[in-house]
């Protein structure tokens, strides 16, 4: 077995974390509508998208730490991480905790589109192949579903804590 299988597994891991975000992003914007929403919840849903994405990125970072435990040496990282560029790209998502970057939710969408591209690539390969292997796409879609659920959960969690924080702030201001 060469490294291609390990690379594929690593790609699936990244898809599990990030590939569901674009659809969640689009849904959140759809819910809000094009006009500025009067509904506070809808508005907050969109404004917190980047933070939800950063939360998912943090979970991904934690997952990488767990994979490397207990040896965090460079040699071990080189051995475990098959596609360093992709891994670094995934970890970069934690920078969306920075309000300056989080304000532009479009950047988080661009960041996540790379992982959604994997799914499109597999769909295209399946579509173009003379004898398509449905199992690979089936696998991808299972991972994609998990990713959707994870990103939705992350968004609602972020919104929930945001409301809690605001409530606490209002009380303390009084």
């Amino acid at each position: 077995m060469d490294n291609s299988f390990l690379i594929y597994l690593e790609r699936l891991e990244m898809m599990a974390f990030f590939s569901g975000y674009p659809l969640v992003y689009a849904l959140a914007h759809f819910v809000r509508g094009n006009k500025p929403a009067k509904n506070n919840f809808k508005q907050r849903l969109v404004s917190l998208l980047s933070y939800a994405y950063a939360l998912v990125g943090s979970l991904y970072l934690g997952f990488q730490f767990k994979k490397l435990y207990p040896d965090y040496t460079i040699a071990h990282i080189n051995q475990i991480v098959q596609v360093p560029f992709m891994a670094v790209w995934g970890i970069l998502s934690i920078f969306f905790w920075i309000p300056f970057l989080a304000k532009n939710t479009i950047l988080s969408l661009i960041h996540s589109l790379l992982f959604f591209f994997f799914l499109i690539k597999d769909l295209y390969l399946q579509f173009a192949a003379s004898s398509p292997d449905e199992h690979m796409v089936s696998n991808d879609m299972n991972v994609y579903t998990v990713s959707l659920l994870l990103n939705i959960a992350a968004l609602f969690l972020t919104v929930f804590f945001s409301f809690l924080y605001n409530k606490y702030k209002k009380v303390s201001d009084l």
């Binding site: 659809l23 689009a26 959604f116 769909l123 199992h135």
Partner: peptide, 24 residues
């Protein structure tokens, strides 16, 4: 893209195709 809801449509179409294509 957002204003036309194209992005959403695109993503839903891709996802939908994926789920249909993955059905063995």
């Amino acid at each position: 893209l957002l204003s036309n809801k194209t992005l959403l449509l695109l993503l839903v179409l891709v996802s939908g195709y994926g789920y249909i294509a993955s059905c063995t």
